[in-house]
């Protein structure tokens, strides 16, 4: 196929009008509103469903949803998760759950944010949620323990309450 090249007028071939209009455009941009977010002071708005770091959640009753089945510990590719399970006292309120984690650590230096833990969890207790800024001043501070993970996770209502129907 042969393309017809458009015939340029003299003004177009001189480039100068085009250059001048380009200069005018860029100059007008100097005074536009800027889109930059001043990060540590201004935080971006995180949309729901954002996949940040893995956190633990509680249900609306305030119960830790994790039952310490340790599936996530097994599936985690970089072995970031370490769980120490503990037996639930039988006569306690949530005695039917039987097991809860005594300790639940995620080494955030190892986590690769793959989301396998979320996928494998039978109790929907671990989620990749909002928190995105993972910082710390030492290796130790980067190992997030149970309390910290729960605090970051907040609550996620659980309408089914599978553990009650046993």
């Amino acid at each position: 196929m042969k393309l017809e090249r458009p015939k340029l007028t003299l003004a177009e071939r001189l480039y100068l009008p085009a250059i001048l209009s380009g200069l005018a455009l860029t100059f007008s941009h100097i005074f536009r509103k800027k889109v930059t977010l001043q990060y540590p002071e201004e935080k971006p708005e995180i949309p729901p469903g954002y996949r940040g770091q893995p956190v633990l959640v509680k249900d609306e009753e305030g119960r830790v949803k994790c039952v310490a089945c340790q599936l996530c510990e097994f599936v985690c590719p970089p072995r970031a998760i370490t769980i120490k399970p503990m037996e639930y006292p039988e006569n306690a309120k949530y005695g039917k759950v039987e097991k809860i984690p005594a300790e639940f650590d995620i080494d955030m230096l190892r986590c690769i944010y793959c989301g396998y833990c979320e996928e494998v969890c039978p109790e929907q207790a671990i989620f990749l949620r909002g928190p995105y800024s993972v910082t710390g001043l030492s290796r130790k501070a980067m190992v997030f323990n149970k309390e910290k993970l729960l605090e970051l996770g907040g609550t996620l209502p659980d309408p089914i309450k599978k553990w009650q129907k046993k």
């Binding site: 860029t26 100059f27 941009h29 100097i30 536009r32 509103k33 800027k34 889109v35 930059t36 001043q38």
Partner: peptide, 10 residues
């Protein structure tokens, strides 16, 4: 600075 301003940045 100027290049940032032209590109609507700071």
């Amino acid at each position: 600075r100027v290049c940032a301003f032209i590109q609507d940045r700071l």
